[in-house]
Design a protein around this nucleic acid. Structure first.
Lengths: 183, 183
DNA sequence: TATTCTGTTCAAAAAAACTTGAACAGAATG
DNA sequence: CATTCTGTTCAAGTTTTTTTGAACAGAATA
């Protein structure tokens, strides 16, 4: 099959400095939000390249294992941070990076935050139930206050997410902050 | 000194179910935002108690090591998530939880996000510099586009933070979203 | 159907993060 | 000054997370 130069083994690409630096940006960002290094590397790799990349090209450019590439691409797909790109006549999967900040953030929030927020309703209710077992009345009252604080926090967090997404929205919107009406 | 019941060794408190559940809430939350379990436990412990707690009381209630308590309190102080509470006639430090969601979030953002955002300006500039070494003109142009994308993202993130804090602000404010003016 | 091509899986290895507890430092007390 | 009290430090141990790569599965090809 073709020249032996096309062999799979060791075609590790040497990246130019600007690509290394750009990928580093994403590695920092993913680490900041608690995602593994390899995910930042893979997204960064796609971000730097003008063309869609394949599994193999990503592995070669980054010099990481097949397992990491496979898992990383899976997570990025789930987050909506990359988009499969169909190339006629090729059996390989090609990927392009999602470039809309709004969609990136939305995917992340949907995956990581929304499930927690949703399930927290039940957990707070269950706290309320177990609160009935507290014999010390004063303490029970205090615990109830704190439970209400948690509910307020939860409600605010829920309301915050749409606001964040709107602020990042591709359609440039303006926000005005109005002082609360006196009632 | 006093009855031997007051001995330091093994005074591990048994927590009521509602406290365990409430602390669990904070453990989940801290883990969600990438802080260690012990930090969630300590804050949760303070959150549940009506009185300020000391180092020792926290350790006893949670059954964790002195090192973890010391480190955890340090981080929480740095985040502004707990407040030292002076008690006359005691040599110990007492702590109360910060209960303002806005201040909690602000402290977290200041500690974790703002430094990254600030330093990113320099890093993006340095990418621009190293970009000059790219011989392929088309690729250089593409890289420059992407660099501008990164700058836009950074700018948006920077503008987002005040918005988030305002939305959580104790002074209830209302936001209105206006469609962008057509220019 | 055998072979090659693509990508996934998962047990084991490696790395990173967290916790522990003994030693330490400084301040208050006697 | 010696002792006790309070809390910090940090090396070592533990746990968790991430990465690796060999084995595998399925689809296309010959």
């Amino acid at each position: 099959m073709g020249s032996r130069e096309s062999s799979k083994e060791f075609s590790v690409t040497e990246l130019p400095a600007w690509q290394v630096a750009m990928i580093d940006t994403f590695v920092r960002a993913t680490s900041l939000i608690g995602l593994p290094r390899s995910i930042g590397e893979i997204y960064g790799c796609l971000f730097c390249n003008p063309n869609p990349l394949t599994f193999d090209e990503i592995q070669d450019q980054l010099g990481i294992s097949r397992g990491s590439v496979s898992g990383g691409l899976k997570t990025l797909r789930q987050l909506g941070a990359i988009k499969p790109h169909y190339v006629p006549g090729s059996r390989k999967d090609y990927y392009l990076p999602e470039l809309s900040m709004e969609r990136l953030v939305r995917g992340f929030i949907k995956d990581k935050f929304t499930p927690h927020l949703d399930s927290s309703v039940d957990r707070l209710e269950s706290i309320e139930v177990s609160l009935a077992d507290e014999p010390d009345l004063t303490l029970r009252q205090h615990a109830n206050d704190r439970l209400n604080t948690l509910r307020t926090w939860r409600r605010r967090a829920e309301k915050l997410l749409p606001l964040v997404l709107a602020a990042l929205g591709g359609t440039k919107q303006l926000f005005s902050i109005k002082e609360k009406s006196p009632n």
